[in-house]
Every structure is written in C-alpha cells, then in structure tokens.
Design a protein around this nucleic acid. Structure first.
Length: 648
DNA sequence: ATTAGGG
DNA sequence: CCCTAAT
C-alpha cells in the first residue's frame, strides 16, 4: 500500500502515562474536566482527581466499598458521613460491573464540605459508562473548585436514580452554580472506562483496579477507540448545561487567545519509587486483541510538604497544583533508556511535578449593575463552558507535542534522561480546538479525536477571540521550567482585551487575569497543529535497517526512494520513503565524518563504505544518464566510482 | 504522490 | 524528522 507520511504512526489507542496530581490546592482550583474525546484526558483527569483526592483525604479514611454484591466497583468517599445513601445504593444495587464511587452531593452537606460528588452521564445505559465528576467545594472557593470528572463504569440503576436528581437540580436556578455543576449532565462520552477500586481496606477488590491501601491507589482504565462519535454528541449538548435564560443577558466571551493551557511540569527525577505516599496508578489499554500488553504502572507520589505550592494557587483561577516529587537522589543506577526490554523486575519510574494548570484567558462581559455574585457565576459559567467542552491534556517534549499516545515514556525518551526538563503539559479546551465546523450537527461526520468538534457556542466565542486577539499566533509555549520566571515578562492578555474591546461595551469587565495566568501562553498556530499532528517519535535506524537501505540503494540508486521503500521497507510502515531518503542523507554524512563525531548506534564501517560507494556511483550515474540505470545491481567497492565513470 | 533539499 | 517547493 501506500505509505503516507505519517501513516500509522499514530496509535489508535494509548496508554495513559500517568499524571500525577495533587494536593489540595490543586483540587480546589483546578478544573480538570473533560469531556470526551480522548481517553487520555479522562485518564488524566481521573488520575489527577483521584490522586489528589485521595491524597488529600488520605487521612480521612473511607470505608464503604463494594459491598454491593458482585460489584467490582467500590465506593469512594472521603468521609463516611458525607456519603449519600441514595447514591451509594444506586451504585451498589446495580449489578454494576463498574464502579465508581463517589458520591456526595454538595448541597447535602450542611456542615461539612462536600468532597466528592458524582454524576452519571445522562443517557446512561446499562453497561455503559457513566461520567462522574468530582467536586470539591470549599467555602468561598466554590466557584473555582470545580474540578474533575471521572469516567467509570456505571451501575445499572445508577442512571435512574440519578436522573431525577439531575433534572430537578437543573431546573432550580436557584441552586446556584454549585448545584448546577453537580447536576450538569453530560450526555457524552465516555471514552474511557475506568474501574476504580477504592477499598479502604487492606484487601484489594477482586477484580480490577482501583485500590487504595493507605495512600495507594490503583487505577485501571481503558481507552475506547471510538471517540469522535461521542465527541459530536457532546458538542451538541454541551450547552444544555447553561440556562438560556441566563445567558440572554449575559454574554460570555471566552477569549482564549490561547487555546491551550500550559502546564508547567517539573520533572525532577526518576526513581524506582516505593513510598508510602505513592499512589500507583495502573492503567491498561483495552486493545482490540484483548491483551494487556500495554500496561503502565505509574506512581503518583504525594509530597509531604508542598514547598512550592504556596503562592502558586493563591490567585484563584484554576490552577491545580499537582504532585511534586522530591528528587530523591542517590537512586542512580537506573538507565532505562537503553534497556527497554529489561524492565521486568525493576520498572523505572519517571517522576513528574506539574506545578499547575492554569485557566486560559477569559473574556467576560456583564452589565455594570451586575452583582459581584453574578459576575462570579458568569465567570464560572465561562469556565465551565470551557471545561464542559472538553479538555485535553497535551504532552510536549521540547515544545513538540507528543502524538503517539501508545508509546511508552521510555520510547518517547521520557525516561530519566535529559529530555525530562523539556517536557511540559498543557490543557486545552477541546471544544475550542482548531477544527472546522464540519462536525457540528453531524454525528456521523468523522471527527478525529484529535480534532474535536465544538459547540456553536464555542464557535461564537471563538469568533470573538479571533477578532480581538492579536497574539493569537506565534506565541511560544513557555517551557514549564520557565513559567515562573517568565511571569513578569509575559504579555498581559488583559491589555489586549481592553484594547480590542468595542467602545460601547462599558459593561465589559476584563477578567482579572492573575499573574499566574500569564504563564499560560497561547501556542502558535504551528504548535497548535502539532498537538494533533505530532512529530513522529524518533526511531533510529537499526544496523539491520541501514543494511537493507544500503543494499536497496546500491541497486536502485538515490533517486528512487519509493522503490527503495517498496523493496526494502515495504512492511515497515513507519519508514516512509522520505525517511529513507533522509536516512540516506545522514548516512552519507555520517560516512564522511570521523567516527568520533558520529553518534547513536554505530554503523559498521563496512556499511558506511558502501554508502559512500553507492553515493559516489549514483551521483555520477545520475548526472550522466537520467534514470535508466535499471541495468544492473551495483556491486559497491572502493572502485565503484571509477567503474561508474567507465560504465557511463 | 514523489522527489529533492533545506531546516 | 519536518516542511516545502517542484514535479
């Protein structure tokens, strides 16, 4: 078949590498919500939320668990008294294979702060997965507390019992954002299946995956490969969550001059973790073959003292502190990068420290007479619009988005080496992700997961963005490790907004953009794209491949890469003819330089000699006669060049 | 779709 | 490896 440039380099599935998450401050302000489109996100959220949740509430033991018969699921609650019976029951009664947990409706708590709360997706069918959101609401912070959503298997009757609640809540406008949020139904998508086991007991649950033992949590989630369909649905309904009435007098403009939210991760170190504070996250991808070949065991470690956490989240907004791992030095001896196959016993760990996720720029417009409270809600809605629209987590290495979700961290070069400091994460509202309106309203249209559809609303918002934002393009991603340092120099989105705002809109309120958000930089068009069209992961040619290439070129010459491809790499989908051409180019270069200057896996000198020979031969040949060298195979030797000239 | 080259 | 121009 044909080799597309990026043919097959994308893996349909992927394993979510873990994402650590964290501490309370994070939970409180980090809206990590997602919707649909890719399991990755879900995974991320899940991991993040759960990890954070558990970590924080670690001390508050939870108790109930899958008492409900065969249920594999369990219930997670932070505080027993907070668990809402009805919900719990629903979950348990069902024969649910899944599980989730959660529970607790915020409004139910009088004294205590609600910690977790879950909603199932509306159209939840038996056996289908439910969407669960977790929310941590604390006093005044409720507007920015919205955080995560979990996607899990839903119990059979979970739906029914919850629907009522949802509907009811939705109507009562008076319940405020909190309720609305809680009750918000997202018909969508659940592309990730998560089985969470949260036994607060010593024994793990019988079947899958989420276990908590002390502070250890295991998550098992899988990624569905059919996301786009759901994506579409989601988009279509995303607005459901907002009250049209309210919106009538209020325009929320989301100025996402940046569509991506940068996260500043701090990779400290790798280590063979083992700590009582660790939260191992176990994930596996549901492969079509049903094998569990892809399993990653990740660890999220909670830092005892978040030294750097303090001021970071003080500004409100959605920054979510995440887990920090103190670099535990002395743990050398881990050279995972080169020993990809020998990791049976000791699995190297890659540690991440994500400083925070920040909310992108928001553009809010409300009447002067609006109350502070309404402003808050407006902001919240704007935020929720984004969140509900779906979130993606992008992982960038050296500024380049890593597209192959299936690759292991190791394969991606995210082991313990130098690459770690160039790794960064970003949150992007998927609904705003660049993508033509093509998908809207057309459930059948193919919306690549990488290019989610967006709701009409978001489209509208985007137009505003387009008109008022001048920095929309060519803004570089600020490397995670530079975020803090760049705060002062970062441009102020607010300024831009103000300048571009229409004169008559007195009501416009530039959302206070905290300095923190300055760290969130819009990505350039180029980078945006790369988020979806990732640079392929590097795949050094093996000596064997080189040999095959050399041989083919010797016979076919240097101008027939397609033929070379067909002949020697026909079954190597990841090697395009362009790759072969490029490789040849580098081989020639390599052959010319001194061995000391060469890098990577050494290519036998013999091959390099042949490279030079073939190169010389075909260079001559090419000039002397245009393309009809099919005559014979070139036997490369030191004399090849001469022979060439003779032949010609 | 391929090639050829620069980045 | 990517990107582009030129075929």
């Amino acid at each position: 078949m044909v080799f597309k440039k990026r043919a097959n380099n994308g893996f349909t599935g992927f394993q979510v590498p873990v994402i650590p998450r964290a501490p309370r401050s994070a939970r409180r302000r980090g809206p990590l919500n997602k919707t649909v489109d890719d399991g990755q996100v879900c995974a991320f959220e899940i991991l993040a939320s759960i990890a954070g949740k558990l970590l924080e509430e670690g001390e508050s033991s939870a108790s109930s668990n899958a008492s409900g018969g065969n249920s594999e699921g369990i219930i997670v609650k932070n505080r027993e008294d907070e668990v809402k019976p009805s919900v719990t029951e629903g979950i348990h009664q069902g024969s649910c294979r899944g599980s989730i947990f959660t529970t607790e409706v915020a409004s139910q708590n009088r004294d205590q702060k609600p910690i977790l709360h879950a909603n199932s997706d509306f159209p939840l069918e038996k056996g289908e997965r439910a969407n669960v959101k977790t929310e941590n609401i604390e006093s005044d912070d409720k507007y920015v507390n919205y955080s995560n959503r979990l996607v899990v298997d839903a119990p059979e009757n979970f739906r029914e019992s919850y629907n009522r609640k949802i509907k009811k809540g939705y109507r009562s406008d008076k319940c405020g954002l909190k309720d609305r949020l809680e009750l918000y139904m997202s018909p969508s998508l659940v592309d990730s299946k998560v089985n969470v086991k949260y036994p607060f007991h010593r024994k793990p649950f019988p079947t899958d995956s989420f276990t908590k033992d002390g502070n250890d949590i295991k998550l098992d989630f899988r990624d569905d490969d059919e996301n786009f369909i759901r994506c579409t649905k989601v988009c279509a309904k995303s607005k459901t969550f907002r009250s049209p009435r309210r919106m009538a007098h209020r325009r929320i403009k989301n100025l996402l001059s940046s569509k991506y939210w940068n996260v500043a991760p701090k990779l400290k170190d790798c280590e063979l973790s083992r700590s009582d504070l660790e939260v191992p996250l176990y994930s596996k991808r549901k492969t079509s073959h049903g094998s569990d070949k892809s399993r990653h065991n990740t660890t999220v470690k909670r830092r005892k003292f978040f030294d750097r956490v303090s001021g970071v989240t003080s500004d409100g907004g959605f920054s979510s502190e995440s887990v920090s791992n103190s670099p535990e030095k002395g743990n050398d001896g881990h050279k995972p990068s080169s020993s990809a196959k020998l990791q049976v016993t000791e699995e190297s760990r890659v540690k991440f420290s994500i400083n925070s996720f920040r909310i992108p720029e928001l553009y809010i417009e409300v009447p002067e007479t609006a109350t502070v409270g309404s402003l808050k809600r407006t902001v919240m809605e704007a935020v929720m619009a984004i969140i509900e629209g779906g979130m993606h987590v992008g992982v960038l290495l050296q500024g380049e988005a890593i597209g192959d979700d299936n690759r292991t961290l190791e394969q991606t070069g995210l082991s313990c080496n130098e690459n770690l400091d160039t790794l960064s994460f970003m949150l992007e509202p998927s609904s705003l992700v660049a993508s033509p309106v093509s998908c809207i309203g057309d459930p059948s249209s193919q919306c690549d997961t990488s290019e989610p559809t967006r709701s009409p609303e978001t489209l509208a918002l985007e137009s505003v963005i387009t008109d008022t934002t001048v920095h929309d393009s060519n803004l570089p991603i600020i490397p995670a490790n530079l975020v803090e340092n760049n705060r002062d120099s970062a441009y102020s989105p607010t300024d831009t907004i103000v300048d571009k705002i229409t004169p008559d809109s007195k009501a416009i309120v530039a959302l206070p953009v905290s300095t923190e958000s300055l760290a969130m930089v819009p990505l350039s068009q180029k980078i945006k794209r790369s988020e979806f069209v990732h640079r392929r992961t590097r795949r050094p040619f093996s000596v064997t491949e080189v040999e095959a290439l050399v041989h083919a070129v010797e016979e076919l010459g240097t101008g027939r890469w397609r033929d070379v491809k067909l002949r020697a790499f026909d079954n190597a989908d990841h090697r395009t003819y362009v790759d072969l051409k490029d490789k040849w180019k580098t081989l020639v270069h390599t052959a010319k330089i001194s061995p000391q200057q060469r890098r990577g896996e050494p290519v036998p000198q013999e091959l390099l000699d042949r490279v030079l020979g073939a190169h010389a031969y075909w260079s001559q040949h090419q000039i002397k006669q245009h393309g009809k060298h099919q005559g014979g195979t070139l036997k490369i030797t030191e004399a090849s060049a001469e022979r060439v000239s003779i032949q010609v």
